[in-house]
Design a protein around this nucleic acid. Structure first.
Lengths: 210, 210
DNA sequence: ATCAATATCACCCCAAAAGGGTGATATTTT
DNA sequence: AAAATATCACCCTTTTGGGGTGATATTGAT
């Protein structure tokens, strides 16, 4: 594989030791070319478009514009680049913020260089590399509560409420009477100990009932 | 590592060749013990509790109770077992159904044995192993539409609507007038070409505006 | 510097919806 | 046999939702 086939990589990371360390380790792998390293998004923004990277390694904690804010801007400038988050942070909120803002993968910094190099190829080929603990958090976010206090019918109706449906819309959809829907909703409210749609939705989401 | 420290594995898979092939390959790996193989959940249900497996490899297409239906039942019988889906199916719906019903990982059947063996250990240790294409689908499910027609404020209000908030609740939360909220909602409806909350929520979800 | 989009607020209208209370009955599950 | 579930009924009042038509100040992009 010659240089023209290499994966073009840009690294945005404020810690010089880490940045240069990654650049060296990745750069010496065959088929990988580090074409730019920057200490911040604000630095990178001047030149990164001409770098035309395939993959961007992005830290979250950066001086000036942070990684999360940088994500949509980078995606706008370079719609075809894959962005791989490389950070020490493992909070749920940051992970989901990153993924919803356009990150194609999420690695924590204890990841060995070999795994990072593999992940770069993986993301280039359309995969979604994640550190094991991140993957588990992502999977957990899908899991429903197995011990819901609600019956099937109640869960079904709660889901429709979460979709913004009115009582009469729910009644039509389920081929039951409006009063039956009311009755179910009342029971849902009692079980969840709430007395409004929004509180029911919040409780349902918090407890992953839906 | 002796047998008592081995990871205890059960395989539920209807194709005999695949089932016995996996059982052999996994069983010969050090630290792995295949303690039961079944052609269906309905077969497995009789004895699986006494197997006390750490990890269950579960196919989705099964005679009788399918894998998705089996998941919650297995989780109820064996709350501490990790269930790894091993299937040819890659449809979004099946993946999310599996994950929300208690699967801890999702592998497609082209996965090499070495990767399966690694994934078993990974899931036992609290990871969330997925095939690369599955991981990308999961990550994509988080991505927001980068070309939303809505302004920031409108998106914010749409999110509150998706949380079931009323106009007045939104007004309070954002410290703006009720009439301002109304005005924003009207503009949201125009932009999304809808005329009700439920349609707005549906359109928002379909287009990943929220 | 200018024009478009955005964010803010105001007042008209009325039908629909939401929530609380109380109770009945048949089916299902345990 | 008892408990939970699913179904429907009628009482009540307040809130909400959606359509229409405007104004004004700020912000953003060209």
């Amino acid at each position: 594989m010659n240089d023209s086939d290499s994966i073009r990589i840009v690294i945005i990371e404020d810690d010089e030791t880490i940045r240069e360390g990654y650049a060296f380790l990745i750069g010496q792998a065959e088929g990988y070319e580090v074409i730019g390293t920057y200490i911040s998004f604000d630095e990178a923004v001047k030149k990164i478009a001409t770098n035309a990277p395939d993959v961007i390694l992005l830290d979250i904690e950066l001086p000036g514009t942070n990684g999360i804010e940088a994500l949509p801007k980078l995606k706008k400038m370079l719609p075809n680049a894959h962005i791989l988050i490389l950070t020490v942070y493992e909070s749920e909120k940051l992970i989901f913020d990153a993924l919803s803002n356009g990150a194609s993968g999420y690695l924590t910094k204890n990841t060995p260089a070999a795994k990072i190099i593999e992940s770069i190829k993986e993301v280039k080929q359309g995969g979604g590399p994640m550190s094991v603990n991140i993957a588990r958090m992502v999977i957990n976010s899908f899991q429903k509560n197995q011990n819901s206090p609600l019956s099937k019918r109640e869960t079904q109706i709660l889901e429709l409420i979460c979709n913004g449906k009115s009582r009469s819309q729910i009644a039509k959809e389920l081929f039951i009477d409006l009063e039956t829907v009311r009755s179910h909703i009342k029971n849902i409210y009692i079980k969840l100990d709430v007395n409004s749609r929004s509180d029911a939705i919040k409780t349902a989401r918090d407890n992953k009932l839906i």
